[in-house]
Design a protein around this nucleic acid. Sequence first.
DNA 1: TTTGTTGAATTGTTCAACACTTGACAGATT
DNA 2: AATCTGTCAAGTGTTGAACAATTCAACAAA
Lengths: 244, 244
Amino acid sequence: MAPQILLQHSMERSQIHRTSVADQVAGILRQRVLNGELRPGTSLQEIPLAESLGVSRNTMREAMRILSLEGLLKRSIHRGIAVAQLSFQDVQEIYHVRRVLEISAIHAAKTPAPERLHDLLTALEQYEKAVRARDWVSAVTHDLHFHSLLIRFLGNRRLESFYQKTIAELRMGMVLVDQRHDHPGILIPVHRKLYELLKIGKLKECARILLQHLDDSESRLSRVMDNHRAAKTAESRESRSKTG
Amino acid sequence: MAPQILLQHSMERSQIHRTSVADQVAGILRQRVLNGELRPGTSLQEIPLAESLGVSRNTMREAMRILSLEGLLKRSIHRGIAVAQLSFQDVQEIYHVRRVLEISAIHAAKTPAPERLHDLLTALEQYEKAVRARDWVSAVTHDLHFHSLLIRFLGNRRLESFYQKTIAELRMGMVLVDQRHDHPGILIPVHRKLYELLKIGKLKECARILLQHLDDSESRLSRVMDNHRAAKTAESRESRSKTG
DNA sequence: TTTGTTGAATTGTTCAACACTTGACAGATT
DNA sequence: AATCTGTCAAGTGTTGAACAATTCAACAAA
């Protein structure tokens, strides 16, 4: 018994524990959702999940409460909890949020700290490397990280955490779909261009390119989601005709 | 015993219950915080609070989890939960958020629906009435409601709920302080001006006035908070010298 | 086909216990 | 007197078991 002690002590006390078990469980589930390990639509049952992680049902409920308030899980009363599924409206809204915040961030980058620029460059290079290696999951990660670094220019914790929460939802939708899809090298130069324009202070031009980039990205994702949906309905129609 | 049944059934079944007790409790606490009934800094103990509302400790914990994720309560592990207290940095950040979102909203109001304009006018009139009646609590409510209606122009649920959550924090700080403070009629014409400019489509001018209004509002709140803080420290210094 | 009815499964909620932290207080030490 | 240390009560974190409420699907009846 008491597997929670195992969980608590398994970190070798590298850092004194200052997080509750519920928060840790939420973290684990969050990672699984964002990695695509838990697919959108998957329903999560309290008891089996709690047992599999060695925590009590109440603790699992707290963890799920956290994630549902973050928008990663969707709770319907007495009907259970499931991994959230992005609708087209969701995608539209999320890209709207991105436009508003990222453009504001660019305009706030009047005299960027060299340290920030260096972080951007690092993220950029990691992104390009991932693309060259055809590692799409990693590419998505570093792509979004690059954009997160832009948000840093706002210097506002609330806007940052809201942005993080928002692109977490987006990422959940992307891993589902981006496994091996198009995404040619066309995207690489855009990020580098953004970086260069930011560095020399051409903010208006930078904002223009960014807007276009976001529009491209949105329509690409929508298209892929549409294909995906079409494929799924075709598949289900097929299976229905088999059984029927 | 079982007062939670009373709580559940007290709504006369006007609408079939589709909210959990935890959510209801969170709602009650949220109202108390926003009304200033629970002052910032007040520490909340699980067991007494749970008993006073007739719910179990676990349910109360879920409710508190909700509010702490909304930013209204602040949780420090093993040390308890307290009503959040706005710092100066918080005020700065919140007004930054307001500037970004409200200005975006104005620019999105190219051809406002007449229905939306009517809502704005109603809010405006209620606000003016409250000011004339020297009812500051009500004035704050309708002031913030007017601004919330502006956000509606964005047509984005995520941005709306983020905005609501953010000004809820602000309101928590305002009720503490705005009980009988300055706030002369100087503020009234600004809102009406905003409305007029919006109606005739002078968005740039509207945005300019709004920005100035937000700056005014921020500096006024900061000033009042500063006075408040000064008064408090003087008071505590006094009480210390009495006991010492 | 449509409309109850039943019952198993799952979530919502409560309760009681224990583990772990914290903060305060009393006694010991210098 | 001032500081350190150990003890202890109070409060939070977590657990496990129970019961209530709701849903859903299978089945019976019309």
